[in-house]
Nucleic acid binder design. Sequence first.
DNA 1: TCCCAGGCCTTGC
DNA 2: GCAAGGCATGGG
Length: 290
Amino acid sequence: MVKISAQDLSIRQISESGQCFRLNRTAQDRYALVAFGRYLEMEQQGGCLTLFCTQEEYDTVWSRYFDMENDYALYRSAAADADPYLARAVSFGSGIRILRQDVWEVLLSFIISQQNNIKRIRKCIETLCERYGERCSAAPGGQEICYYTFPGADALAGVPEEDLRACGLGYRSRYIVSTAESVRDHKVDLEAVKRMDFRAAKSELLKLCGVGEKVADCICLFGLHHMDAFPVDTHIRKIMDEHYPAGFPFERYRGYAGVMQQYLFYYDLCGQAGRTGAAERTAEKPTAQS
DNA sequence: TCCCAGGCCTTGC
DNA sequence: GCAAGGCATGGG
């Protein structure tokens, strides 16, 4: 069991922000995450976050996953003076961090995310994992839990499109099969992409069917940790039109504009900026673990 | 019934 | 090169 301050790492906020679709609220204050084939349960109460894992697992796996080596207070302070709107967004989502997720998982997740809502994205991905991932079990609190790993490119390449449509993936099914085949056959080599800089990596990812500007930026930010990537989706487009008609000051946030993007996105999705009850719409209801 | 959800591909000019 | 239109599906 590892206890850390929730001031700088809020699992609730990260979960709500829809950055990782396999980080779910399972009960009041309880969260479950499946990443890199591992299962992690967490509890966030007041200012304390408890991770139900060993100190060694935290040190070797989760500390890096949650990007704990970076000082987000520095990023947040950059927004304080010149930009009142961003300052409010940063204050609202102060516990958000940019996760270091698996590239393949982010790639597929954000192909699925297009023209889709967060609740349904989670459902699609869970179905995909149950049908094509590997069944595993863990016993974090003595009670056995069953979970499924994220299926690799090998497992999805060659799957009939109709079978994926049966997972609720709709027209994205074609993109998924095509992309899985491209990755399996090394037409796009994800291991090589990991070693590229932002510009080269994005250019390579854009070769994949179903990956456009926005999805490529999400992969670069959430999977490759290129912190300059700035995905522009419907929320960010709206924010840019309303609050930055002369353009967003990227120069001011060089090297971490993507972090600012996440604060803005989360504020629009769940904060006052969202106005019409967006937080209630997107906050997942607790789901039972099977 | 219509609109929207972390867009992208294809077509026609 | 660029603007439209089409695309699955579920929820409000």
